[in-house]
Design a protein around this nucleic acid. Sequence first.
DNA 1: CGAAGTATTGACCCATTTCAAAGCATGTGG
DNA 2: CCACATGCTTTGAAATGGGTCAATACTTCG
Lengths: 225, 225
Amino acid sequence: MRHIAARTLVVKKGEPVDHSTLLLRGFLSRYVDDRRGQRQFVALHVPGDLVDLHAFPMKRLDHDVAALSDAEVAILPHAAIEAITREDSELTRKLWFATLLDAAIHREWIFRLGRLDATGRVCQLFAETGARLQAVGLGSETHFVLPMTQAELGEACALTSVHVSRVLKTLRDSGICTFRDGEVCVYNPEALTQRGQFDPTYLYLDHAHAHTDGATRRRLALARR
Amino acid sequence: MRHIAARTLVVKKGEPVDHSTLLLRGFLSRYVDDRRGQRQFVALHVPGDLVDLHAFPMKRLDHDVAALSDAEVAILPHAAIEAITREDSELTRKLWFATLLDAAIHREWIFRLGRLDATGRVCQLFAETGARLQAVGLGSETHFVLPMTQAELGEACALTSVHVSRVLKTLRDSGICTFRDGEVCVYNPEALTQRGQFDPTYLYLDHAHAHTDGATRRRLALARR
DNA sequence: CGAAGTATTGACCCATTTCAAAGCATGTGG
DNA sequence: CCACATGCTTTGAAATGGGTCAATACTTCG
């Protein structure tokens, strides 16, 4: 177990790593820098996510990982994962699946940046994050926590903070949702998913949680208090 | 083994699949459609790629797969992969790695769309594809095949075909590279990677080919004739 | 109380899109 | 062998979404 302070680096690009992390509480981000030091977020992580399991087969990361909020993580030594892969092919496949879910979300982000306008991008990010948080029992369809600044939203959606501010204003004025102090309130979920062309099948929720039984769900919910 | 005609669909989004494909010859693309039927490419595949290995743990795809050119693929039944995962954890990890390479390239694409201007996007795509082709012994630093139209380049880089045409003109005029009839000629590789902020460490070439011995390389080269 | 980080708003600018027309291959049927 | 359609590329002119620059306000915190 390890505690991580908000806005600190968790893993640095390129350095060899011998463990992966499971996020228990808080939010992490993954991003790459361009030549002028501008960041582009490539992933956002919510509690329950295996943040850098891909470091197990790859042994280094091609991006940085940082905490958006204070966070609690569990450390998984690669030696332990290695043992799992030797002994339990069923569980190995589930770990593999977890890393592929990540890739599916990457594809959604490519689509977001490639085909949606500014408002659509913000809507899709909100819709996706809301759905992921609901899937792990945090937040509801109408309200969830997202500890980011407008500038960070811009780094995720490839927009300037100025324009994010304008987009949020139009979303507010049109009664779709609000974003204040790191909290999203959704007043019109239908319009949000519509405007963001959000398709939850990307998240493979049926498959991802097919093997989570009721007892485990309750245990997870308790652990998050 | 299976032959696929240019511009035909190989796998359709959402349908359950019981096999994955290894691309032996030709080029495939993966893309998602937006509501108005516009395509956004999320991946481009060159010979040697395991195109949809992620379908093994996921059992369906969240995107379409189509052939850019005539292509030759090998079919890998999931039952066979399943057997590998039970019997050979070493090889399983290599398969896992192959799907993660895909995710690393996805991240590069997110960066491309988020932080590069039109010219930079095209340069990065050319640099990346050139590097991947070279890694499997196809093409050189100064010349390789890329069977796409300008409109398809636009679908990969999130640009209109009109603007792709203009970008190619500036690249031609500045002596960096040319693109004609599905072939890229690079006259200034340094400028190409610079303009596209291309960083080959994304491709993990050291790691990906660490276990390919000389005999195997020669066999692969022969198989491609 | 001042400082630093964050959000808002306005005016102007520019990269890319949109719309439109024309050129150039390639192929097909009469 | 010509007439014509089709698909791809090029070029120009006008429109626009989002960026840039700049000023102001609102927090929070020492």
